[in-house]
Write a protein that binds this DNA or RNA. Sequence first.
DNA 1: CTGTTAGCGCATTCAC
DNA 2: GTGAATGCGCTAACAG
Lengths: 336, 336
Amino acid sequence: MAVTIYDVAKQAGVGVGTVSRVLNGNPNVRPETRQRVLAVIEELNYHPSPIARRLSLRKTLTIGVIAPFFTRPSIVERLRGIEALVAESDYDLVVYNVETPERRDACFRSVVAGHRVDGLIVIHLAPTDDDVRRWAQAQTPVILVDTRHPALHRVVIDDVAGGHLATRHLIELGHRRIGYISDWLDEPFHFTSSRDRLLGYQRALAEAGLPFRPEYHRQGDHGREQARQMAHDLLRLAPRPTAIFAHSDTQALGVMQAAADLGLRVPEDLSVVGFDDIEMAEYAGLTTVRQPLAETGRKGIELLLRLMDDPSLPTACVELPIELVVRRTTAPPPNP
Amino acid sequence: MAVTIYDVAKQAGVGVGTVSRVLNGNPNVRPETRQRVLAVIEELNYHPSPIARRLSLRKTLTIGVIAPFFTRPSIVERLRGIEALVAESDYDLVVYNVETPERRDACFRSVVAGHRVDGLIVIHLAPTDDDVRRWAQAQTPVILVDTRHPALHRVVIDDVAGGHLATRHLIELGHRRIGYISDWLDEPFHFTSSRDRLLGYQRALAEAGLPFRPEYHRQGDHGREQARQMAHDLLRLAPRPTAIFAHSDTQALGVMQAAADLGLRVPEDLSVVGFDDIEMAEYAGLTTVRQPLAETGRKGIELLLRLMDDPSLPTACVELPIELVVRRTTAPPPNP
DNA sequence: CTGTTAGCGCATTCAC
DNA sequence: GTGAATGCGCTAACAG
């Protein structure tokens, strides 16, 4: 069987308390004793059992991340930021991938009710008041990333400003008929960013004295193929939009496929703007609204670590900057 | 404080043993007793402590995954397959992202030495004999995915066949000067697939009576930008290759950028073949060698679960099929 | 400074 | 069937 703290204690001729002390860097140990214990630990190749440690400490020493759709590049980027910082800490990282509302609810409930984590990061998914109440009751620190709730700490961007930024860019190029492709505004997941960006889009239109045409707004499942379909619909309208703002880069790529399908050149016949600035955006030469994805993950963990240290921290809302990145998919509209 | 098994026992007027029995589906409980206990559990909203459970069971109830470069689409796909199956099991999934050889070694050692997992999946990273010995000694079941070691269970593809498939396709189209862009053949990570695919590439050339020209093979860090550079070098050769086979789709996209940079049309002036068939391959119309990425993850977990159940399982090597997917980046070479 | 002891919450023998 | 006792490996409080 594995070597335990007792084996070390016996072999070193000390008590388990002392071994524990050197293990945890307690200064109340005579240097020579410490050396002896350390030597025995090395000799026996002893590794403290994290599980026993957890039970005794009454901490799980793990951080959970609940995120939808692992495979989306934007989520992966955030996860990367998270993993990088967690790896440097003493915590384990356990991940929960959510692809259905049922699974989301199950995760939201069981992860904290079962006391499986010391802290939780929730990406993109919007918790209900009920969820928040349960978490508070379980005293589990939670940080929201790319989603929000008034009672919870969060790291976000200004989605309204993002939608506004993209749309104004198109307007300044001379576009008057601008489409918007988004995720479902009302669906089981209750994502909020689509709605906020729509708001920014509408606001930019209004500022330019342009009407909001509901038929220029399409919503559907996230994904390139679905976006392609929506763009098809949009581009068959008469008059058709001369520019399309997509809720994400992935969807923007779908729009570009649709344009190709219909023999429209980008940007000569159709301008396209995405959101996120994932790696493929650069490849595709996509004009987009950049948000610091990995940074949101890092900031989230930093916040969480601090919060676990001091649960009384006043609710923080860190907002990260966004930025328009102009590449090759936007240009003035074609002459009518 | 959280409610424990003792609270439930007291409230239900039974012993903790009985509560434990109903919790674990032990049949030796009178139905009415079971009902009563269940009712109290519900009433008290009791959740067994997974940590105490682990300590008592002497199992961590967690599965670890060690993988390099989380953000690579191919890795993400595999992870997705893994997560999906683990979520259905009683195990937690903890992930270790490796971006340096040092970190790899640290993970390889500490994860099993520290008894942090009941089973381990290693993706892409090649373990040394030393690693394997340590793992065997710790009695930790390990499954290799997309990498191999004679003593370990693994799920792989035939990389030699893959390289052969891609190259033969180009040869059949009439190409005679075919480049190959790969990861470093000799580097700290000791990835083996590049070497195997090179072998298949060389074999296909030989079968067609074509010489292997070392200057047509470039190696470098993985990544689109690096591949772009390598392709630049290749395409400035005289005579330049009329086709390039890239070790991965990501790198193939870099090759396509290089072609664009140099004013070469794909596939008219240059044919490109990738590997993996990640989602972007379809977008880019990339001809590629498809491997069932998510499936490798699923198969890996299946194997691991079985292995944890019966450690004496004879070493398994499951090989998944690959397939050439012809799209729009390959065509006959230009007339000289 | 250091050894001893009492939990942490659950599973698992044993007796009854 | 069921309850009481023991141990999983470690930390922390308490004596010395």
